[in-house]
């Protein structure tokens, strides 16, 4: 689904290397998790994949279903099926959540040459999905993320994911700021989207989320590289021992 080869990234403005040759191969239908110390480059990887400005790819490639996504505009990557649930979702005052969602859904459909979703159909679908995530009508009406609690913002990200039905979902610390119940809701939301084809890259610091969303592969990222990959047991190891041993091992 997503092939990342030797991805090297530095900041555009200053000569600071952040990713130093990331290799990842995410097969369709699998759940991969990335863990790693603060500042190791996890969010940067998710931003570069989704097309945020300010980063320069100096080497390497990223292909989504064989298409070079690094050449595409962010909206084209989204239409091609890539989705990023932000670590820090952005507030947009004055634009209703519903308007935003509908604009997003129909923009993607348009870019893909598909017919737009009618207002009625959209309303029906969004209400049902919001209900599953315990997002009430008021939250749908309010401006995007404005005045939402941390947990509400994260649930709103998952709602967007559910509406957009992407092929490749990247979740950047979607578990942070969630209470235990919200974590279950979000995990249910994610699991409901697992259909054997859809692929997930879950960035997290904690084993807890991975109890609910069972990963097939766990990667450890440090200083801009994947230093170790393994099964779910790797996450447990991190939970119990931290990164010190792993970092030494690979140093």
């Amino acid at each position: 689904m997503l092939e990342i080869k030797n991805l090297c990234v530095q900041l555009e403005e200053e000569d600071k290397k952040i990713l130093r040759g990331v290799n990842l191969s995410l097969e369709a239908g699998k759940v991969h998790a990335i863990m790693g110390p603060n500042g190791s480059g996890k969010s940067t990887l998710s931003y570069v994949l989704s097309g945020k400005g300010g980063y320069e790819v100096t080497e390497g490639s990223a292909h989504l279903e064989g298409n070079d996504i690094l050449e595409m505009e962010p909206e084209e990557r989204a239409a091609a099926g890539l989705f990023l649930a932000f670590q820090y979702p952005v507030e947009i005052p004055g634009v209703g959540n519903m308007t935003f969602l509908r604009t997003a859904v129909n923009s993607q459909r348009k870019l893909r040459g598909e017919p737009e979703m009618s207002a009625g159909e959209f309303l029906k679908v969004v209400r049902a999905k919001a209900k599953d995530l315990k997002i009430d009508a008021d939250m749908l009406k309010r401006p995007v993320n404005v005045g939402f609690s941390g947990g509400e913002k994260k649930r709103n990200e998952i709602l967007q994911m559910a509406m957009l039905e992407p092929k490749m979902c990247i979740l950047d610390e979607t578990d942070s700021g969630l209470d235990v119940d919200a974590m279950k809701l979000v995990a249910q939301g994610v699991n409901a989207l697992r259909d054997g084809k859809r692929t997930f890259l879950v960035i997290t610091h904690y084993q807890r989320l991975l109890d609910h969303i069972k990963p097939d592969v766990v990667h450890i990222m440090a200083a801009g590289r994947i230093i170790k990959s393994g099964g779910p047991e790797l996450a447990l190891e991190v939970e119990n021992n931290g990164y010190a041993d792993l970092l030494e091992e690979t140093a």
């Binding site: 945020k52 909206e75 239409a79 947009i92 923009s107 957009l164």
Partner: peptide, 8 residues
Amino acid sequence: FYLRSRGV
């Protein structure tokens, strides 16, 4: 970027 990342 947030909006564009959603396909807008």
